[in-house]
């Protein structure tokens, strides 16, 4: 009788011990996204706020859809930066989505804009392009897609604030030369294709001088209509 009942009793004890262990694992890393994305922090900051390196962008508060698209593009090699391509190569879609959501939901304060190194005329040219565009050269204003406050729109259009001039001009250069591409229709490549090098310097410099707005969050999907089709932001 005793023998008949000990085996199930032990089985139950083992099962409960196991359930307990799963709930509160001993000597394990924290079961959090923050611990899982520590590999991102030397370059992007603990909360995705960016670091002192001007070429590494802020991630915090950008729309999750935009960040997810970038993670997919780095994983497939479409967007080329070997350290990123290497880190993401074998990570599954749902995990990349979770990473994107993690950084999208972080809101460390935007940095103080750095004093600009370019002339007033160059800044004025940058402001004109960013706020009004140049219809004669088929250049839409940055604000027509990235929003009146330049904070981006859910789910796929990034805000342009809190980025350094070097990063913005390197990315615009990438779009111009076709080393950075996105899903077709590749709206940013069309726009950047019309920019000259002087345009890039000016617009990057002006964007980097913008102070933080009261509400830095990207506006909801559909807040305004895009001037043309964009593969990263399907209607």
């Amino acid at each position: 009788m005793f023998a008949r009942f000990t085996a199930p009793a032990i089985a139950i004890a083992v099962l409960s011990a196991f359930d307990g262990a799963a709930a509160q694992p001993a000597n394990q890393p924290p079961d959090t996204m923050a611990a899982r994305v520590e590999a991102c922090t030397p370059c992007h900051g603990n909360k995705g706020e960016g670091t002192s390196d001007v070429y590494f962008p802020r991630l915090a508060g950008k729309p999750a859809g935009y960040l997810y698209n970038q993670l997919l593009a780095f994983r497939s090699g479409r967007r080329k930066y070997p350290p990123m391509n290497y880190l993401l190569e074998f990570l599954p879609d749902p995990y990349l989505e979770a990473m994107a959501e993690y950084f999208a939901s972080e809101h460390p304060p935007l940095p103080q804009p750095a004093p600009s190194e370019v002339s007033k005329d160059v800044l004025a040219h940058g402001e004109l392009l960013a706020t009004s565009g140049d219809a004669g050269r088929n250049i839409p204003a940055c604000v027509s897609c990235h929003g009146p406050g330049l904070t981006g729109m859910q789910p796929g259009i990034p805000g342009l604030l809190g980025l350094r001039a070097n990063y913005i001009s390197a990315q615009l250069g990438g779009w111009r030369y076709g080393t950075r591409t996105a899903k077709s229709p590749d709206c940013m490549q069309l726009v950047a294709g019309h920019l000259t090098e002087a345009d890039v310097t000016a617009v990057a410099a002006w964007l980097a001088t913008r102070p933080a707005p009261a509400n830095p969050a990207p506006v909801p999907k559909g807040t305004y209509a895009l001037p043309f089709g964009c593969g990263s932001q399907p209607n």
């Binding site: 611990a35 899982r36 520590e38 590999a39 922090t41 030397p42 370059c43 990570l91 599954p92 979770a98």
Partner: peptide
């Protein structure tokens, strides 16, 4: 499905 990563120290 959600592995922990090792940070790169090349820049540090």
């Amino acid at each position: 499905p959600m592995p922990y990563g090792m940070p790169p120290f090349a820049g540090l």
